[in-house]
Design a protein around this nucleic acid. Structure first.
Lengths: 341, 341
DNA sequence: TTGAAAGCGTTACCAT
DNA sequence: ATGGTAACGCTTTCAA
């Protein structure tokens, strides 16, 4: 009576042990994948457990094991369908590994530090960062807690125990340049956000390099943001101020993410330009909306599922072997030629 | 030496207590919001804690308190921008409350049961379900664990301790009917998924009722799925098989979610119909893509942030007072009249 | 293979 | 207001 007042009605391994006539240790072993326990006893325990409605308290297990089987995912801008697809794939992958995803959505340039603290306090088994700019501090904190860190689409630093997964932006940028060159474009206008992500700049740099080989002129214009509206406004404005009109089909725009490319497309059409006759356009990511018949945007596909799969392979490996060498995986990308190039 | 082999390098409240010359209890109180502790001692402890890099182990705290400050969010189809916006708003709200979001993305008709088990094993402080069909079993399991359950866009059952938040679908459906009537439409075609969600059927039913008052004829056609492609195919097919051509402007389509409405819009345009001159169209949700200039879809806005805010108010209240009466909140919706109605 | 007992790091109760 | 101590529910040595 005196003790146990604050406890809720909850079935514990102790209850199972008593009901099954075994020790708590055996109950634990019955639920452990590799427990040293006879098949006979295990099935008995499992049966009893099911009968009385027991399941392992993961918090207690986590305290004991000093890790929680939770995985932190840090992302931003889920309004970009490429991101939300990535997050969906990642969460499903995490669950498939027997882990649980803790999702944090951050603002455009919110520091990752604060969030990381929250995650570490939960003894996470790993952290996946798809957005934000992880600096060395973060890496060190993860390392101090022995928490694996997987970076998606981040600059490929050579930090210990940190793995990277990214689409092959260099190949992607080259593919765009080639596709445009084959269509006879002699002038490419890169429309990119003022504050560019690493992945985008890889794409752009590769395109610029390739264009150099092709003797294609490249010009860059900057937009404030990386969403639909930013591109719509930027390109609209550019079309009105541009001294040299460009409706002869010699020019094409490259916008290094689809959500912005679709804004650019609308800006071109509103101005009365025919795409691809008067001017060409290519995006990057291959979000669902790019394939919509109203857009039919030519782009480069980075498959979120493939990326997620590699992230989880790496994570599983590093949970197993925390001290393995840092690995970087570049996922192949594919050209999706539709109507706008 | 013998003991402590498996412990990681981690600073505990014990370390802080020793360094600050106080008891572990005082350290705990220093970190508790309402701890009975003198301001002086608290600031001292906090200072020492910061110096040696201590933060509360949430797993240990969770074990003791019998709840983890984790909140489960169950969602599906993040490829629908309305959903991803909802999830983003929800996760941010959860964090703002000092809780942490555990996100599970489920497949179209995956049972929620399995996932719920995972959540309950983590002693979550609450569960938010925005997808899937929670049956009585789920409610009972949450109740048994004293875990608050908030349902978004679900049928308003009268289960104890379960709260509901939903957009005002009845008002929304009526608004659509009125807007269409004012444009002189005399025939409305409802394009809806074969397996309709509760929220959608509320919208449709309300529209049908209102159309009855207006003497507007309503016809329903069924699509296989509730995404862009489903609507594109369904409407395209309907346009070719329809015996009575409908290009006189008397007809309008109502598609009860925007992502499908945009598919319907493309189907109409591909067929050469001018929208809204030849035929009208309205959607529902007001996703970002509806406002894109290429679409300019007339729709009804349900604000995901408002919905999330109400969900969190309810959750906080129920964590505080588990036995309060079940509450249902209907969020007001607003008409977004653009170019297609 | 099984059981007993010692933690895992925290908070809450009970004294002082 | 503060300190000692007993849980919280589990896993994991260590013995048998």
């Amino acid at each position: 009576m005196s003790a146990g007042d604050r406890r809720k009605q909850a079935v514990t391994s102790h209850d199972v042990a008593r009901a099954a006539g075994v020790s708590r240790a055996s109950v634990s072993r019955a639920f452990a994948a590799d427990g040293n326990i006879s098949p006979k006893l295990r099935s008995h325990v499992l049966q009893v457990a099911q009968d009385i409605g027991y399941s392992v308290n993961q918090i207690a297990r986590g305290l004991n094991r000093q890790r929680s089987d939770l995985v932190g995912i840090i992302a931003s801008r889920l309004d970009n369908p490429h991101r939300s697809a990535q997050v969906e794939a990642l969460t499903k992958g995490v669950v498939a590994q027997g882990l649980r995803p803790l999702l944090f959505c951050i603002e455009r340039n919110e520091p990752v530090d604060r969030i990381l603290g929250l995650l570490l306090d939960y003894q996470v088994s790993g952290v996946i960062i798809t957005s934000g700019s992880p600096d060395e501090t973060i890496v060190e904190r993860c390392a101090a807690h022995e928490v694996p860190l997987i970076l998606v689409d981040r600059p490929n630093t050579d930090w210990e125990r940190v793995d990277h997964v990214t689409g092959d932006n260099v190949a992607g940028g080259r593919m765009v340049a080639q596709a445009l060159q084959e269509k006879g474009r002699s002038h490419i206008v890169v429309v990119r956000p003022r504050r560019i992500t690493h992945a985008m700049s890889e794409r752009v740099d590769s395109l610029v390099t390739t264009c150099g080989e092709f003797d294609i002129a490249v010009e860059t214009i900057l937009m404030d943001g990386s969403d639909y509206d930013a591109a719509l406004q930027c390109v609209s404005h550019w079309l009105t101020t541009q001294n040299a009109p460009v409706r002869d089909g010699s020019t094409a725009l490259f916008v290094p993410n689809d959500i912005s490319a679709l804004g650019a497309l609308d800006a071109l059409r509103v101005t009365g330009l025919a795409v691809p006759q008067d001017i060409g356009l290519m995006g990057y990511d291959d979000i669902a909306q790019a394939a919509w018949v109203g857009a039919s945007l030519s782009t480069v596909r980075q498959d979120p599922e493939t990326i997620a799969a590699e992230v989880l392979t790496l994570l599983a490996r590093r949970i197993e072997t925390p001290d393995g060498p840092p690995t970087t995986i570049r996922i192949p990308v594919t050209l999706k030629l539709r109507s706008t190039h």
